[in-house]
Nucleic acid binder design. Structure first.
Length: 581
RNA sequence: GCCGGUGUAGCUCAAUGGCAGAGCAGCCGCCUUGUAAGCGGCAGGUUGUAGGUUCGACUCCUAUCGCCGGCUCCA
């Protein structure tokens, strides 16, 4: 079997080959393999249309069928520049000139030639099944200021069956899309009437948030945090002090004037926390201070980047700031990371990517502090034996950070958790504490969010579970389905009993067939459907069908109640009721 | 913001320059049902918005807004 990325990379060449055959004036950009296929960037004379894709696909098939051998050639940089200049490939020339080596390699197939490190499949005939999936604009070398090229995405496989399988999986993944499920499950909506990127939370979404927020608050109180609240807007002066007005303005909304003073809607919660810190003299005995806030912030996001709940303009961060001494830094970071992993695990996220971002070129704070903080982050990751990737120079100017990213249904990664050491704000706000030595010291500040934002986190949750939330999170945990109208009274009685136990229960009293009611309950992904007919009324029991299709008969209301409560209380991720039920 | 696509009923989609339609959901009625759709009826629309072309526009053109896929940027 051919390695996927080699096959895909060769397919990108085949795509470029076909494009050059059909549109000889096209200039080539780059064409790598990616996680889910390949792409190639082109500078076309004309706009591409989806119909062009069919034509290109056909040409690719034709070229593949000819089974041209793919051959490698090593050229001096000079010769390579000459070769691509003659062919009018300005972008390739630019790339060659920037390569550090004296020699470069090119690959040939028929008349087509491309600058490339390789490796490639031996001949074009090895690419048997491919599909060009989409067209998109992409800036040359990812730079907004440079020309926009037209990018063609595709996938390819060694057989038609594999391709079909892949396309089928894509279709399945699309069904998990939180924007589709968010509507179907009546969780949230985003409407132009209110504004782009500003979600409205419907009752089911409101309930989800309530459960998550309660869990989060209780857990933070247990873990030594205090809960604080800061308002949605603050004077512009404050954002000047914090530096946001200088460094973050392009993400902030325009100020509004109130009685002669300018106010800003907050894009961050930190300045408020700084002011609370400054509200009185702090002692070393107070440290570490851990303040948490479910703080709603508003950031200007360019219209093209908005994406359901995963990228919005107003969102609630599960924010917290820790003020500590240098000596406490290691322990605090370790505790935060532990808490983050614990919370993610509770929600069923066991797979994520962790990044450690280190000092960038532009930075504030002393090298000493940077090193200490970076080591503290690293040590915490190692203590917990977490796999991570280092992103050198990718830290924020004010400190190093750990980011945790969760993937959506289509494999796109979204940053949720972030742990950032901040050397900047303590300076700017001149915060301090009195040390044991009776001298003033500047605390270290850690900024952290674990779910990141409730919006994004819930979006990820919806996709992770394809809408079938764990019992403890399900907006409706059980629904009562009487078979005929004469069973309604008993149904309502059961509903009342379960509700009294604190469970979220509904009843479907419509004069509908039980099949219909089950179908609807199933579509709403309600964990348990409680079916009541003559037998159940008579014996004062229930028949339980869980959403996985499992059927248990003759269950007493009381034991069901206990069984569900037990699962809810331990935030179980599965629906298996205890055997005694 | 940029490139491309797209916008018809709450949802999914028809109608290609000539009377805006279907299924589901909703409402009303009948049926009284045993583990994924019982039957019938009713109602539902300034075709995203604003202009324009035309005897006539859902359909063609312009602008604008939203949405979708990318790019850049980010929790």
């Amino acid at each position: 079997m051919i390695e996927k990325d080699i096959l895909w990379h060769s397919s990108a060449h085949l795509l470029a080959h076909a494009v050059k055959e059909l549109y000889p004036k096209t200039k080539l950009g780059i064409g790598p393999s990616i996680e889910t296929g390949f792409y190639y960037d082109f500078d076309f004379e004309h706009k591409l249309t989806p119909e062009n894709l069919n034509k290109i696909e056909k040409k690719m098939a034709e070229l593949a069928a000819k089974n041209y051998p793919i051959t490698k050639e090593t050229l001096s940089k000079k010769d390579a520049v000459k070769l691509f200049k003659e062919r009018g490939e300005d972008y390739k020339v630019e790339l060659i000139n920037e390569l550090p080596d004296k020699e470069v390699t090119v690959y040939h197939q028929d008349s087509f030639v491309d600058l490339c490190r390789g490796p490639h499949v031996k001949s074009t005939g090895l690419m048997k099944a491919f599909k060009l999936t989409s067209i998109a604009g992409a800036y040359w070398r990812g730079d907004e200021k440079r020309p926009m090229l037209q990018r063609i995405y595709g996938v390819s496989f060694e057989s038609k069956a594999q391709l079909d399988d892949f396309l089928e999986k894509l279709k399945e993944a699309a069904k998990r899309d939180h924007r589709v499920l968010g509507k179907e499950l009546d969780i949230y909506s985003i409407t132009d009437e209110w504004g782009a990127g500003l979600p409205l939370w419907h009752p089911n979404g409101g309930l989800l948030r309530h459960v998550i927020e309660s869990y989060w608050k209780d857990l933070h109180l247990e873990e030594g945090y205090s809960l604080i609240t800061t308002p949605h807007m603050a004077k512009l002066d404050l954002w000047e002090t914090s530096g946001h007005w200088d460094f973050y303005r392009e993400n902030m909304y325009s100020p509004m004037e109130i009685e002669g003073a300018d106010y800003e809607i907050k894009p961050m919660n930190c300045p408020g926390h700084m002011l609370i810190y400054k509200s009185k003299t702090r002692s070393y005995r107070d440290l570490p201070i851990r303040w948490a806030e479910l703080g709603t912030v508003y950031r200007y996001e360019r219209s093209g980047v908005l994406h359901g709940l995963l990228r919005v303009r107003g969102f609630t961060q599960d924010d917290a700031h820790i003020f500590c001494s240098t000596e406490q830094l290691n322990d605090e970071i370790l505790a935060i990371l532990k808490l983050a992993i614990r919370i993610l695990k509770t929600f069923g996220f066991n797979e994520y990517d962790i990044y450690l971002s280190t000092r960038p070129k532009k930075y504030v704070g002393s090298l000493d502090n940077w090193e200490r903080a970076t080591n503290a982050l690293k040590k915490a990751l190692e203590d917990l034996m977490l796999d991570y990737q280092e992103d050198p120079g990718e830290g924020v100017f004010y400190g190093p950070k750990i980011d945790i990213k969760i993937k959506d249904a289509l494999g796109r990664a979204w940053q949720c958790s972030t742990i950032q050491v901040d050397f900047n704000l303590p300076e700017r706000f001149e915060i301090q504490y009195m040390g044991k030595d009776n001298k003033e010291h500047r605390p270290i500040m850690i900024h952290r969010a674990i779910m990141g934002s409730l919006e994004r986190f819930i979006g990820c949750l919806i996709e992770h579970y394809a809408g079938a939330f764990p019992l403890w999170l399900s907006p409706v945990q059980a629904t009562i389905l009487p078979i005929a109208d004469r069973h309604n009274d008993y149904g309502l009685e059961v509903e009342k009993q379960l509700k009294e136990a604190g469970l979220r229960v509904s009843s479907d009293l419509r004069s509908q067939s039980v099949n219909k009611k089950i179908r609807d309950g199933q579509k709403q992904k309600i964990p348990y459907m409680l079916i009541i007919g003559d037998e159940e009324v008579e014996k004062k029991v229930l028949s339980i069908r869980d959403r996985q299709g499992k059927d248990i008969r003759n269950v007493k209301v009381d034991s069901l109640k206990k069984g569900i409560l037990k699962l809810v209380n331990k935030k179980s991720l599965d629906l298996e009721l205890n055997a005694s039920v």
